[in-house]
Design a protein around this nucleic acid. Structure first.
Lengths: 156, 156
DNA sequence: GAAGAGTGGTTGAAGTTTCAACAAACCCCA
DNA sequence: TGGGGTTTGTTGAAACTTCAACCACTCTTC
């Protein structure tokens, strides 16, 4: 496209990396989803299970959970409802703040997580951790750390 | 969770990088979507426009386009239908292969792309290209290149 | 201690994606 | 030449996400 006054395009190399990145991310998600689907889970649900499992009492307030797994509240409400129907989590109303609701990992949820985790981790390793040269992997950690700090800098 | 027979977990560091990566990706998509939404587009639609714009005659077979933007055929059918309703693309039936359909970028689609591109590129730069140290950025290119080659190796 | 502002979470409808089934056209080969 | 198998793309329903509105509760503040 024609050059405009201030438009700064990316160099060919930057563009290529950017596209490789987009495809790579898609590929990773595909790979992980394919694995988790065999356990009847998707990545979002898996992350919910992990978060709960790691929390005190294996439960978290809906809003905390939403934050942790990077979902909107509304989406989480729906997702948790579905998971509740399947018996993976339970809603427990929170005594201190009666608006509040805990999402509580059930035993069944924990068992499912336990059965899904090994092959999930193996998938992560396969498609990502071991695919990449260790130095590049470390660089990747720094890189995304920087991405996360963008726009937060002045706020700290 | 307890250690099992063969389960190889990630090291703390690997795990941390993995999570940073997941959050970083979410952040990037959020950032880009927020920008594109101001033009009434999302990332998937934008990619469709870009792909078409770069193709011979500004058109592509549906299946080629699906491949290029990494969407299922069905999803692409629906997405293109919506974009067609908005006048951004047109369907043209393909004379050589009468099963085939070209998705053809319209002038309106091109104009929208032209108006959306500068700030989109600026967003990419902001949240990604410039956020990251150049060496790490190059490493990232290598890393995702490797990710893409996993599982294809024996096939080539 | 009650009005107003804010927070936590849900709801239902509209919009989007996925899934399985399908129709039309092509390809091959006898 | 006309089956059978494959490829292309669409369809409609089910599943999921988004969006705006909403209720119930808490936190001020006067």
């Amino acid at each position: 496209m024609s050059e405009r006054v201030q438009a700064r395009w990316l160099t060919t190399e930057q563009q290529q990396i950017w596209r490789t990145f987009l495809l790579g991310v898609a590929r990773i998600q595909e790979h992980l989803d394919a694995d988790l689907r065999r356990h009847g889970l998707d990545l979002a649900e898996y992350e919910i299970l992990v978060c709960l499992e790691e929390s005190e009492g294996r439960r978290l307030r809906m809003s905390e959970l939403a934050e942790a797994v990077h979902q909107s509240r509304s989406r989480l409400t729906h997702t948790v409802s579905r998971m509740e129907r399947r018996g993976l989590v339970a809603r427990v109303s929170c005594p201190e703040d009666r608006r509040g609701v805990w999402a509580q990992l059930t035993d069944a949820g924990f068992e499912l997580l336990r059965s899904a985790a090994p092959s999930h981790v193996e998938s992560v390793r396969e498609v990502f951790v071991e695919a990449v040269d260790p130095d590049d992997f470390a660089a990747l950690g720094r890189a995304f750390g920087r991405v996360l700090s963008v726009g937060r800098e002045s706020a700290d």
